[in-house]
Amino acid sequence: MEITKEKLLDFYNTMVTIRSFEEKAVELFAAGFLPGFVHLYLGEEAVATGVCANLTDKDFITSTHRGHGHMIAKGGKIDLMMAELFGKATGYCKGKGGSMHIADVGLGILGANGIVGAGQPIATGAAFACKYKQTGAVVVCFFGDGASNRGTFHESLNMASIFKLPVVFVCENNMYGISNNQKDHMNIGDISDRAAAYGIPGVTVDGNDVIAVHEAASEAIKRARNGDGPSIIECKTWRHRGHFEGDPSVYKDPREQESWLKKDPILNLEKRLGELKFASASDLDQIKAAAREKIDSAVEFAKKSPEPSPDDLLTDIYAS
């Protein structure tokens, strides 16, 4: 596949936007601005970016508790996301959902999800709808290594494969389900091997290489759009932070952390952009500065936004 300068710079812009959003979330959480919990996507930016670059607004995704990156990569509005993290009335969910439930159904984002593995059947159903209505749309289901141990994984993959549904299951394998290393929770090294059980393709790629992720997703999404059914892409990656902000990650070996930080997806892409002479260091600095500015203005928006009124407690439970 041809990698154009424009495309790579677009990837870069998305990845640094996600990074700036998450770094700001670290700061805001520590300063006590954000209620509840936040699970950050730092270090995994290449996965959402490389996958969602193949999607249009009519395509769907299901996301996870670690969903900010998916939202941004799928075109979610940063100011509404930030306001939701603050629990403000102007947020995506009017302050009723928070970080773990941000959604934009109009953009095909069927929500982050607080239940590990719950997105898998929902993605299967959205794909059922795409096929039923013959819209030509596809669905991407993001999930983690831990979620591949849920029963939802088996039921969804089996159902999607027998109905040949247009859905791509993208496993973000960051090696840890909260504190537990993958090797303690499954008897295989590559989660993509599980594809064989459903008679569908499964590949493992370097999840910190946005180009590799993009290529694998492009192929799987094409296959799904052509009516050839689901597949699994496993992206091996690493979360820089704890499971949630405040988790000191005592279960991780600092040497392992150090080695993964050297494989950071943004550093990887910067190196590639330099090799290809697509961007100078100052070009990249400009993109990063612009991303930070966007985030700062989202924070400004969130801070200035009104709190929800207690009168809104009982609205939005049922549709009329």
Partner: peptide
């Protein structure tokens, strides 16, 4: 639609299908 014996996926798929515009 005859489904496999997969109650989780039966109800879960209905959630996704309904969110995407069907009435399962």
């Amino acid at each position: 639609v005859d489904t496999p014996i997969s109650e989780t996926a039966i109800v879960g798929h209905a959630v996704g299908a309904a969110a995407a515009g069907l009435r399962p």
